[in-house]
Simulated assay, not measured.
Amino acid sequence: MAKKKAILENDIISFYMDYVLEKNENPKSVYAFAKTNNFEEAKFYEYFGSFEAIEKIIFKKFFDNTLSALNKSDEYIAFDARNKLLSFYFTFFETLTANRSYVIYALHKHKNTLKNLALLSDLKKSFTDFISNLNIETLDIKQEQLEKIKKRALEESAWIQLLLTMKFWIDDTSASFEKTDIFIEKSVNTSFDVLNIVPLKSIIDFGKFIYKEKIHRS
């Protein structure tokens, strides 16, 4: 049988996602993977150095596709930082939900290992760059070194918040993941309220929501 010629990066990603979901394991080798999908092994290496590289790029593509969709909206472009971040979250988790089986497979495979962090490293870089470019207003420290520390702290805390939301989404069993939507809205609004030093109403509200969820799951 003649080999497929027009094989692109997205084709290989689709082949890989289908394979691991059907077999519940990684392909044994690049050669076997290429043969199963009827393309030349060399085509794989035009785009990827390993299966781990595919896994990393998949999560980055979830991010890229989310941002691409948002940037097509004039309404999104006109949003302030808070609403841009909320829009990102809702759209990103719609993307994850459309690929939930794969996301859970990939994250559980490296559960509680450093490889899990490596798997998300490209996503983290893209997301923290996104946070940096939102120009979120914070207290003006007026000292260069402290400003750099503040910027890094903001990016890292935003990343941790995204990871916590992903964990909540993975454990969410509500219809249409409606509790995740509530979690997103409350956590993002609370984060901005903390930065803007406004009254603690939303912080308390978010705390009550988390406490209620923990009690019900215990």
Rank of each mutant, 00 (worst) to 15 (best):
H108N: 15
Y19T: 05
Q143T: 12
G207H: 05
I184P: 00
K5P: 06
Y47G: 03
T180N: 02
F90H: 03
Y76L: 05
D205L: 07
S174A: 07
F90I: 01
K214M: 14
R82F: 06
A42Q: 12
E137M: 13
Y16P: 00
I170P: 00
K150A: 12
Y211I: 13
Y19E: 04
K84A: 03
L107K: 04
P27D: 02
L154W: 03
Q161S: 11
K28E: 10
E178W: 08
D11M: 04
N71S: 10
I170F: 09
E94P: 03
S14V: 07
D140Y: 15
T97Y: 09
F168N: 02
K61Q: 09
S218P: 07
E147R: 11
A53T: 11
A42K: 12
S29A: 05
A175F: 12
A118Y: 15
K43Q: 12
S73N: 10
G49N: 12
I7W: 03
V198D: 13
I184K: 00
S14D: 08
I204V: 14
S101V: 06
E144D: 14
V103F: 07
L200Y: 10
I184F: 01
T180M: 02
K3C: 10
E213Y: 07
N24E: 10
V103D: 04
L139E: 15
M17A: 06
E137Y: 11
I104N: 05
T180F: 01
F51W: 04
K148C: 09
L146S: 08
K115Y: 09
N10Q: 12
D181A: 09
T113M: 04
A2I: 13
R82C: 06
K186D: 04
T165N: 05
I215V: 15
K150T: 08
I58K: 02
K115E: 08
E9V: 05
F48W: 06
Q161F: 07
I57G: 04
F44E: 00
N37A: 04
